[in-house]
Nucleic acid binder design. Structure first.
Lengths: 257, 257
DNA sequence: GCAAAAGTGTTAGAAGTACACCCATGA
DNA sequence: TCATGGGTGTACTTCTAACACTTTTGC
């Protein structure tokens, strides 16, 4: 479908964007992957790639990243963070990847090296999103089950996860983009443990939650679980912004020294 | 000079690298800037730009950044960190910048949009380096005295400083790349104050230094100063690496939660 | 009643912050 | 001797980390 929409436009043959869209299913982190078109394989995790595209001459990088997610997964207007450019001359070493680019973009000349600008997005995997993903033949793959991807997309995903840690350190709100609107303390803890790759003490975690004013406990609890039902919490963005301020300026920052 | 060396090579007309090289003169932070060739101006801070260049087809992005600094400032093999890509379609809105690119790279066709990958380097401004800079007509401009630069280079420098803060938080050793081999506690404190944009308590700062095993006090002191002479310290990289470990993996990281 | 996960407080040590005076040197 | 910046210690607060048992629910 995206081909009909865009084949008239002029693709810049040297620059692309790729999007690492991260989701959290309550248990594991997942990445949104799409099939290389024209390649059908029974094996789920093969012949897949990150949603991405060459950029068009009329659009900024950020616009291109938004467009790609809209075209390939039906996702509109989410918070995309540019985190790294990948420009090794070897990243198009695999002929199948080169062929795919030429076919996908209806290019008449040989693809040379492509520099790609990688974006990160953290989203809630909800019904609407999974439905959209299905329609676009995109899927949410557990990070532990990602096979060999096209180009250097495995490396890009690696870097994305390294980036998240640093990013979350200065933007604690970011992880709440991954959690559902109503979440349990255990889900939140699991997410922190995955992010920081270490176990966290249950009691200390509860204490911390209770001290964060922007995490508000709800009356609602789990139902139908074969054990004591967990309380739901929600993230209150307004309160968060009051506390942390919304500016990202060079001033008003803290240090550990 | 660089034109003789490279004009045979094929420049990619869509992708460039730009380097923000930061130095510290003991008092202020400075950025390495070069003149737009063919433009001589009596005013120091005008018609200047970051050292940068289109990339050539045979080189990786990182290689291109290294090459640029070698060609434009005589600097070899330093630690360059890629921190952001700038790809607004408006960044080549100024005809003088476009003309400059076409002239500098002997291009026969119109320049369109150029996506630039920005790199950061933190260096010691020593005699050797200032001499090299002079030879290449590059200069070290105080951050407070940077005028209007070519392209979006003012914005790139802004982003570089925002990046440094975050980077230093997870790589405390980075600031010692800016300090001379022998430095006083006051120099170090000044650098931290500039980096974090806030005053730091003198006594607490000394306490902190004395607790960092990798900052070793020397016997040597200042001479010829009209006040009590300050002790020199040095940064011991080996000790630092023993303490912090050298891996940047996803594991072995700490959290504040 | 039992399996399975939720929830709850205290204590000790480490790290961070606030604060005021004497010291060494050159002019 | 004075002007200038260098260097030092203590008390208080906050943050972090370690640790074990009771509660609720479905089966």
């Amino acid at each position: 479908m995206q081909n009909e929409l865009t084949k008239e436009m002029l693709a810049n043959p040297h620059v692309s964007v790729d999007c690492v869209v991260i989701g959290f299913d309550g248990e594991d982190l997942r990445v949104l992957l799409v099939r290389q078109i024209g390649k059908k394989s029974s094996e789920m995790a093969h012949n897949m790639k990150l949603p991405g595209s060459l950029i068009y001459d009329h659009e900024d990088l950020d616009e291109a990243a938004q467009r790609v997610l809209n075209e390939l997964a039906g996702i509109k207007s989410l918070n995309l963070i540019q985190f790294h450019a990948f420009g090794s001359k070897n990243r198009t070493h695999d002929p199948k990847d080169v062929n795919w680019v030429e076919h996908f973009h209806h290019m008449d000349r040989k693809v040379e090296r492509i520099v790609t600008i990688a974006y990160l997005a953290m989203v809630k995997i909800n019904k609407k999103l999974t439905q959209l993903s299905d329609e676009h033949e995109a899927c949410w793959i557990k990070t532990t089950e990602i096979g060999e991807l096209a180009f250097d997309h495995n490396q890009i995903i690696e870097e994305a996860f390294l980036f998240i840690r640093q990013y979350v350190a200065s933007n604690p709100a970011a992880l709440f983009d991954l959690l559902p609107h109503k979440f349990t303390a255990a889900q939140m803890r699991r997410l922190y443990e995955l992010t920081y790759n270490r176990k966290m003490d249950v009691r200390n975690f509860h204490k911390k939650i209770s001290m964060m004013e922007y995490i508000v406990p709800l009356e609602e609890k789990q139902t139908g679980v074969p054990h004591r039902a967990a309380r739901y919490y929600k993230f209150d963005k307004k309160t968060y912004n009051k506390i942390h301020g919304t500016n990202k300026s060079f001033k008003n920052n803290s240090s550990t020294l």
